[in-house]
Design a protein around this nucleic acid. Structure first.
Lengths: 129, 129
DNA sequence: ATAGCTTCTGTAGCCACTACAGGATCAAGG
DNA sequence: CCTTGATCCTGTAGTGGCTACAGAAGCTAT
């Protein structure tokens, strides 16, 4: 059994975030030592690592929670997992498109911006466009 | 002079958001009619439209505020505008890269997910990877 | 005994809104 | 004149996902 700092180090999840996940009911409450300190089992730390990876893949926390539950239920429900992941990938692609649109617009707008300009073309575009 | 609903319609900025911008000091406090209702001039509405366009270009609100100030100061400081915009475009490109990384990872992880699977490969990757 | 590290609880801040609640006022129709 | 419904007002709380304290207690090493 490990203290919260050790669990944080082993899982890569910050201490405050671990307590936050506990408050939110995303991970079960860990055991407490006689001095009231949280004590984490290897399985607890595995859950944190699982959540960490979900978050790194950009899943919303609610999805991460669902995935964790699916992972711990009897027999992996691969279809539900796939549905979640595919919806997420669609969202990611949407965001990419949106950002590429932004990038193109910004690039075009800044192209004519030069330090010597009396009237800034970007500002005038923002004012009138 | 226009009431807040009309200002919202003309600028595309939501009513609650207009009041929020006022609270945050991003736009000056508008005049009030005798019945205490906010009254917006064409210039006020122009400011809101300006902010709206900045936000649509993905500028953080703090940047939008700065751009508005630059826009209203004597002589457009094109260099400052350009610096802001170029930094923003760099951030956008970073985000795009990050999302593309996510997309590739997710696509690979879901590729082997099929509804008939007994053990979900995505889950097992999250558990062990 | 002391110093410094870790942990505890509880609360507030971040960003940029958004959504109420509960009340006042206005414009139009009967 | 009265009602109905739209609009407006202030103030507060919620969103997501943490992050940063404050102030106290306990642990470990010297």
């Amino acid at each position: 059994m490990f203290a919260i700092g050790e669990a944080s180090r082993q899982s890569g999840v910050g201490i405050e975030t671990i307590r936050y996940y506990e408050r939110e009911g995303i991970v079960p409450k860990p055991e407490r030592a006689s001095n009231n300190r949280r004590m984490y089992s290897r399985q607890d730390i595995g859950r944190l690592r699982f959540l960490k990876k979900c978050r790194e893949l950009g899943f919303p926390l609610a999805d991460a929670r669902t995935l964790l539950e699916l992972s711990e239920s009897d027999g992996d429900d691969c279809q539900s997992v796939k549905d979640l992941a595919e919806q997420h990938v669609l969202n990611v692609r949407e965001k990419i498109k949106e950002l590429e649109r932004l990038e193109a617009a910004l690039t075009e707008l800044t192209a004519n911006c030069d330090s010597g300009n009396v009237s800034c073309p970007l500002l005038s575009q923002l004012r009138t466009g």
